[in-house]
Nucleic acid binder design. Structure first.
Lengths: 142, 142
DNA sequence: CCATATTTCGCCACAATTCCCCACTTTCTA
DNA sequence: TAGAAAGTGGGGAATTGTGGCGAAATATGG
């Protein structure tokens, strides 16, 4: 499954967000929410999450660092599933991390989704586009 | 499939554009719309898009740039399919990017299509032709 | 251990949008 | 000139966003 596009939703008073319908089938079996490095929430489908977890645990790191890495990765993550209407409830800690209040942007990013505060998304989008075009042009040079 | 030629269409009140009949077979399985670097919309057949996505995600870039590249590439793209009449619906954000209102130019560009505002197309075409002739002449010099 | 209060979760309902199908008119072709 | 194909427009059904109600689960205090 490839995740595309940009969608805007409101959060209802109970903190639930609709998932874009076209993604629901791919996420029926569950998803994992984790804080992004930027101010956003990342939503992985279950299989993508497993892949990611594998690469983390098999990476070339010392055991003590691995334990810390595990903690940081798994303690902050949430296993979530869609409700009957195709919505998910956002954990408060993640909402705070992404500074999401009552409007969300859901953006596809190839093999995962990102959830953003609308304002932050707009500025991030501008930066991303600028960088991307530079990279693409440099790639096209050969 | 190689895309050739230049076609002009009207957009109906629901934002739908006909795809030139000769291209429909190649796009039956779906296409991806993305904003162009210039003020236009680019339409990739599904397999071409996959190739592009591969070169982007396996390219020689650092993780943080890779995330941004993912964002810019996938969030701005839309997965679309033809309706029974061989038309597609243009997402509003892309229409705004290309400043397309009610007339479209669809131009073949080798392995993808470009959708243009008619006025912008005319001026871009003039520039492109001028540059193309210069390039061709420089090629012929050896 | 029970009862009350509070939160969480699933379900329903309405309004709006989207999607799909049908029809007409024009153009191209044989 | 007749038939087929394609451009254009419109209507109806299905889907979806969003708010709200009520039941189940959890927590708290007696």
């Amino acid at each position: 499954m490839m995740f595309f596009g940009e969608f805007e939703y409101k959060i209802d008073e109970k903190g639930r967000v609709p998932i874009p319908p076209r993604f629901r089938k791919a996420l029926r079996e569950g998803l994992v929410l984790a804080p992004g490095i930027e101010k956003c929430i990342i939503a992985y489908p279950l299989d993508e999450w497993k892949k990611l977890a594998d690469t983390l645990t098999t990476g070339p790191v010392t055991p003590s660092k691995l334990r810390r890495l595990n903690r940081a990765t798994f303690a902050a993550a949430f296993s979530i599933s869609l409700d009957g209407q195709g919505r998910i409830a956002l954990p408060i800690s993640l909402k705070q991390h992404a500074e999401i209040v009552d409007e969300v942007i859901i953006a596809g990013a190839n093999n995962y989704l990102e959830l953003w505060n609308k304002v932050h998304w707009e500025s991030e989008k501008a930066i991303s586009q600028e960088q991307a075009w530079q990279i693409i042009e440099s790639l096209e040079r050969h």
